[in-house]
Design a protein around this nucleic acid. Structure first.
Lengths: 135, 135
DNA sequence: TTCACTGCAAATCATTTGCAAGGCC
DNA sequence: GGCCTTGCAAATGATTTGCAGTGAA
């Protein structure tokens, strides 16, 4: 039994060929891909894969806490297989999304923390690479 | 010249009947409405109003900094006429969105602040009202 | 007259749904 | 056998686009 299967089982998700491939993709590509990007990347390995399955699977992962939904991009939903609390920075020029290590719970009003399940911190600006090119 | 006209002009936006009505709606309804909610609320006052105009206008407001785009709800874009830095809490039961007074810039890594244009802090949980009803 | 603004209809496109077929326990 | 999973095709629904009419400076 491989590591990805174990990971999925740990979140109460039955492993299948498709689920393992999608999670493995998320874990090895920290690019915060869209459903479509995942689909395009995996269709060679799994020619019968359907986009519906990618959507279903990502939804399942998020519900079970095995992945995170990222709403920083107004156009598409993006996903992250790294589930520890952290913030996201999105470059307004190249669109790249970068992880920022911080625990957002530290920022919550103290008298409010008990009621909170999820918190998202999204930041937008111009990344170092794009900043360099434009000057 | 009324207050809303002045407000729009201050952001470089030429006032029109439609723009004034939409901004006035945002300013007097702190409910973080969707484009469709604004459209439905205003079509009585302005029977010729089109949804395209609502979309165009909200986009213009956000570009000019006269309103804020809120991406806390995966289904629809929401908008806020209150533009001072603050966070948003969304109840997972009733869907209500509440403003939280905090300046997110305080949370940004110091060596990073210069590169940042916008920051969004979204929190999800169960609001006091819903919590009371469910217990 | 010109150019910005508006609004209708059609297009786009990400995501969801219905349903039938296949596979696993 | 029965339930879970998959995948196709069609539907949905928010948002955008093309374009022509209107109006203001």
């Amino acid at each position: 039994m491989d590591t990805t299967s174990q990971y999925l089982s740990g979140y109460g998700i039955r492993p299948s060929v498709q689920r393992i491939a999608i999670m493995r993709y998320l874990k090895s590509n920290r690019t915060h891909p869209t459903a479509d990007e995942i689909f395009e990347a995996l269709r060679m390995q799994i020619p019968t894969l359907s986009k519906t399955t990618v959507y279903n699977t990502l939804k399942l992962f998020v519900e079970q806490g095995a992945a995170i939904y990222i709403g920083i991009d107004e156009k598409n939903a993006r996903f992250d297989g790294y589930v520890e609390p952290h913030a996201h920075f999105r470059c307004k020029i190249c669109g790249k999304i970068i992880d920022l290590e911080m625990n957002m719970e530290d920022f919550l009003p103290r008298d409010f923390r008990g009621q909170i399940d999820e918190s998202y911190f999204y930041i937008k600006g111009i990344c170092e690479d794009c900043n360099r090119k434009n000057n």
